[in-house]
Design a protein around this nucleic acid. Structure first.
Length: 451
RNA sequence: GGCGACGUGGCCGACUGGCUAGGCACGGGCCUGCAAAGCCCUUUAAUCGGGUUCGAUUCCCGACGUCGCCUCCA
């Protein structure tokens, strides 16, 4: 039974499915106004790993992940750069999916856009107003948090506790709000801003009503799992939940949050701190698989430090697995059953990927020993390594093709070596290395792979 | 001020009340024309102080330190 930590109950508990064998999960997607950063990369990778693993286990996963394509930040940028806001959202969305593709993240089964659900949001807000849970001010429509008896359930803080603190930040619309924690569901537009009609005045959606509307519509009431970064826990997810609760609906049954990406000093990467690192830079500079590798070796709830040293170590660990795959090519046998049983047991325990990777490396070592000893047990271990890596979304081996002229150089190198013309052999080897290949010269001949 | 998380070997990073996590680096060996690559080996670390226990890195209390949230960066 697959068990997962639930942010709401603060315990690892079985992930129940309304329909056994079918999981409906909602992942808060990006607001498209800029390039994806490392935090986005982590979240999508974590949930991609979860999704692939569950699918590998035979579960039919429906992953709904939204694109928030209307938001203050988008409008700000459009004004600043003096171009249509759709220009920005379309561009950013394509950059987003391109980056996700490079990370090996599968496209969600559903990618609903906020702008396609504005009418539904307006209807929902109307219901909230009718129920007395929302009210109008001069700048928009607000949800009354006092109408949600357990507001703060995800943050694990009561309303009083939250207000007791040193909230020294700006409080939007404070003068007219009934409670300073009340949040905007609808924001009236200023002239020239994108706007949709509503019974209260033209405007745009406020605090992520799209997530509420789309998750309930596509996955249904009381859907199985709601996911996102720990940074979304409060207020984003708390406010989503508040809207659904105020609506009288059952919302997500299980809440999952992944940990932060921190910088080298251990501080959270955040736009407000100005220390965000662009995901595209990471993808350009390193093997795109390295980030997945690093995250697999870190528990999803722990903070992860993304820096040169860490990534380097992951790249090298990956290279070790690649050479194992190369070395064991041609061995085809069903995966070792004991190893796979342990793998499942480990992964079912709150997605314990660090331990799963430890098992992978351990199995590699055992397989190598068996190969060297000519033991036939090797094949099943090789099969287990491949199967585990594939369940985790780690693609091994096929990193770059070997060009035919490089292959010719390698053959010339072999010829030089057998002729004991070592000066020429060394020159050829240097030439191949300069072309970016890892050159392995063995008795059986020279093998090449991309560095 | 309130709520919460965390402090592990050279670095990163897990699990765990007693039994070697793992990766990377360093070192040793095998292989090799020499290398590189590859393979194997490299057998005790847990901020501090109390407590519970036969036994604590693991549970409890306290101190110190780091970090996060406490309303629009998501």
């Amino acid at each position: 039974m697959f068990a997962l930590y639930d942010t709401l109950t603060r315990e690892v508990r079985p992930l129940e499915m309304r329909e056994p064998g079918k999981l409906g999960m909602y992942l808060c997607g990006p607001t498209v106004y800029g390039p994806p950063h490392l935090g986005h990369g982590r979240a999508t990778l974590v949930y991609d790993i979860l999704r692939r693993y569950l699918e590998w286990r035979g579960i039919d996963v429906r992953l709904v992940s939204n694109i928030t394509d209307i938001d203050d930040k988008i409008i700000e940028r459009a004004n600043r750069e003096n171009r249509p806001w759709q220009d920005i959202t379309h561009k950013c969305e394509s950059v987003w999916f391109n980056a996700m593709g490079r990370l090996g993240v599968k496209r969600p089964t559903d990618v609903p856009h906020a702008t396609d659900y504005v009418e539904q949001m307006v209807r929902m807000i109307g219901t909230l107003v009718e129920r007395g849970a929302a009210y109008t001010t001069s700048d928009g429509v607000y949800l009354s948090v006092e109408s949600v008896s357990d507001y703060g359930a995800l943050a694990h803080q009561s309303l009083d506790d939250m207000l007791a603190g040193g909230g020294d930040r700006e409080v939007l619309g404070a003068q007219e709000k009934r409670h300073s924690a009340d949040f905007a569901l609808w924001k009236f537009s200023k002239p020239g801003e994108p706007a949709w009609p509503s019974p209260w005045g033209d405007g745009r959606p406020g605090w992520h009503s799209e997530c509420v509307v789309m998750s309930l519509e596509l996955l249904g009431e009381e859907f199985d799992l709601h996911c996102g970064g720990a940074d979304l826990r409060f207020p984003h997810h708390e406010n989503e939940r508040a809207q659904a609760v105020a609506l009288g609906k059952q919302f997500a049954r299980h809440w999952m949050h992944n940990g932060f990406v921190v910088d080298l000093e251990g501080e959270k990467m955040s736009k407000s701190l100005g220390n965000v690192t662009n995901l595209l830079d990471l993808l350009d500079q390193f093997d795109p698989r390295a980030y997945r590798m690093l995250l697999l070796q870190t528990h999803y709830r722990s903070p992860v430090k993304v820096g040169q040293d860490n990534i380097d170590a992951s790249v090298k660990a990956l290279s070790g697995l690649d050479s194992f795959v190369a070395r064991s090519a041609g061995r085809n046998a069903p995966a070792d059953a004991d190893t796979m049983a342990r793998f499942v047991q480990i992964m079912d325990n709150d997605l314990d990927t660090p331990n799963a990777m430890a098992l992978v490396f351990d199995t590699v070592r055992r397989a190598n020993i068996a190969i060297d000893a000519g033991d036939s047990a090797a094949d099943a271990l090789v099969g287990a390594v491949r199967k585990m890596c594939s369940a985790l979304g780690l693609e091994l081996g096929s990193t770059g093709e070997v060009a035919t002229d490089a292959r010719a150089l390698a053959d010339a190198l072999d010829a030089a070596r057998s002729a004991k013309d070592f000066a020429r052999a060394d020159a050829l080897r240097a030439e191949l290395q300069a072309l970016g290949y890892v050159v392995e010269t063995t008795k059986a001949g020279t093998s090449l792979r991309r560095a």
